[in-house]
Design a protein around this nucleic acid. Structure first.
Length: 493
RNA sequence: GAGCCGGUAGCUCAGUCGGUAGAGCAUCGCCCUUUUAAGGCGAGGGCCCUGGGUUCGAGUCCCAGCCGGCUCACCA
């Protein structure tokens, strides 16, 4: 806690004055009839004359975010989450006690007002206040009106202040909410059922990542915060829900960066009887229709670059992309020594002891990914890095899988699901070998998941979309912290 | 984990060569009944991130640490 300071003391004194005058500094119910945004939308086009004629009365509440006082009158600006609206407080229009309350107002206080809409001399759309209800006292001063709150650390640690002081931040999180609501609607309209699966997993699975470990006292077992819901959602497909989705948190015990937070929001959905081609089309529809709905366009600006979300997007196979970007010939996919040499030549750091697929994948990530600025569907990933994906009929070394890249980042990962329980068991065993070779993130064998598959899972395609990264794109934010209300920071002090 | 940058009043920031810690906004007092970064006059407010060191003297120089940002590494 900060030490009490001058301004805080001053405000506590005012709070006591309010109490002495019989005004509750922390009041209760207030009947809000209007919202600033709505009033502005409905009436702010009207001329001074028309407003005088119509005498529209209104009642709304908000936080005082600006205060300009003169002798016996003053203007305050109230912010109510929908917008900001100026109110006019004039002694003549208020009871003596109410005017005294108005005189004591501080920036940050919450009040409710009833009054009549009018235009000032300078033609500002304003509420002439006739009744004022004090709602809540702020003891701490708001950041400065002109520069606002810019200190990044304070903005993240005290997001509540950031949201008060920076309307554009408020806007981003409101957009975030509308994007997620839009995704829900999109899926529900297409017959998907929203489900919730465990956050606490006895065996972390469904992704290659380091988990957080926790402990359940009564059961006396260690549990893991989930790294992905995938294996549970597929159990539900086995159970007979042909279209399910979940939007919820994943937790990965890894580094923090502008595109990584230890907890992040993931959408996963599964479609029975479909394959990954169907999901490519579905993803194009989802992303482009969301852009149209939320932003009103499908060609957007992201960090100074034009991104064309308009479908169809480029399709490019994993291997073709590597070859074309680097002008290589396909022999590197067969010959490890050659792959190592090419990696060195391209300035891609690899360990010569790595298996071939690892070296190739490193080349992909270093040379191809950064080039995928426009939406690109990369297809046909190697089987070694796709332990849950269905084998390709035409080439058993590849899988029926794609990833969507936009602005050089992985946005979605999807595949026709592996529903052959015997093949899945072999893949898990292959992962176990990788794990023994030192890959901490290789999958563990999940016997119950295998048992579920043995009951039979229909052919199904599934996809995961990193919601935070999608929101970064839609809100033109460079850092994932700016689309998460409370990004992870080191504890204060 | 490494490199670079930053941390000074509630907020946004100055602070010269090492020589008494500054401004604007906010706050307090007085004036002001249509302002909008309102205005005028006056006042108060500091753990200069923390701990060491150098020095007659450190916000400033040196060392260590803490917190944050960016880049890289890690994260397929």
């Amino acid at each position: 806690m900060d030490e009490p300071n001058e301004q805080r003391q001053q405000r506590i004194k005012k709070l006591e004055h309010l109490r002495e005058a019989g005004v509750a500094p922390y009041g209760t119910r207030f009947e809000v009839k209007d919202r600033a945004g709505q009033l502005i939308k409905l009436h702010s086009e009207k001329t001074k004359g028309i407003l005088e004629q119509e005498k529209i009365s209104c009642t709304f509440a908000g936080r005082v975010v600006a205060l300009r006082r003169f002798g016996k009158a003053g203007f305050a600006v109230l912010q109510d989450g929908s917008d900001r609206l100026q109110v006019y407080l004039k002694k003549d229009f208020l009871s003596e006690q109410t005017y005294k309350v108005a005189e004591q107002l501080d920036l940050g206080d919450w009040i409710g007002v009833t009054g009549v809409l009018f235009r000032t001399k300078t033609n500002e759309f304003t509420v002439e206040v006739h009744q004022l209800t004090f709602l809540s006292k702020a003891l701490r001063p708001l950041p400065e009106k002109w520069h606002g709150l810019t200190d990044v650390e304070t903005r993240y640690r005290q997001r509540y202040v950031d949201l008060i002081a920076n309307p554009e931040v408020h806007q981003i999180f409101s957009t975030r909410s509308r994007i997620i609501a839009g995704i829900r609607t999109f899926l529900i309209e297409r017959g998907f059922l929203e489900v919730e699966t465990p956050m606490l997993h006895p065996i972390p699975g469904g992704a290659a990542a380091k988990p957080f470990v926790t402990h359940h006292n009564a059961l006396g077992v260690d549990l893991y915060l989930r790294i992905a819901p995938e294996l549970y959602l597929k159990r539900l497909v086995v159970g007979g829900f042909p279209r399910v989705f979940e939007i919820n948190r994943n937790f990965r015990n890894e580094g923090i960066s502008t595109i990584h937070n230890p907890e992040f929001t993931m959408l996963e959905f599964y479609v029975s009887y479909a394959d990954y081609h169907d999901l490519i089309v579905l993803t194009e529809e989802l992303v482009s229709s969301l852009a149209q709905q939320i932003l009103g366009k499908t060609v957007i600006d992201y960090q100074g670059k034009e991104i064309r979300l308009t479908p169809p997007w480029r399709r490019w196979s994993y291997h073709q992309a590597i070859l074309e970007v680097n002008s290589l010939d396909p022999s590197i996919f067969q010959d490890r020594d050659k792959a190592v040499m090419v990696a060195r030549l391209l300035g891609v750091e690899v360990d010569p002891k790595w298996p071939l697929f690892n070296i190739v994948n490193e080349i992909f990530e270093e040379t191809v990914e950064p080039n995928l600025q426009q939406p690109t569907i990369i297809t046909d990933y190697p089987i070694e890095i796709s332990p849950l994906a269905r084998r390709k009929d035409s080439d058993p070394t590849l899988t029926d899988r794609f990833e969507l890249y936009i602005a050089g980042r992985e946005i979605a990962n999807a595949f026709s699901e592996l529903n052959d329980p015997l093949d899945q068991r072999e893949r898990f065993e292959g992962q176990a070998i990788q794990r023994e070779a030192g890959d901490e993130e290789a999958h563990l064998v999940d016997e119950d998941f295998l048992r579920a598959l043995e009951y039979g899972m229909p052919p199904t395609a599934g996809e995961g979309i990193g919601i935070d990264r999608l929101i970064m794109l839609f809100t033109n934010q460079a850092s994932i912290r700016d689309v998460m209300l409370f990004p992870q920071l080191r504890p204060e002090k």
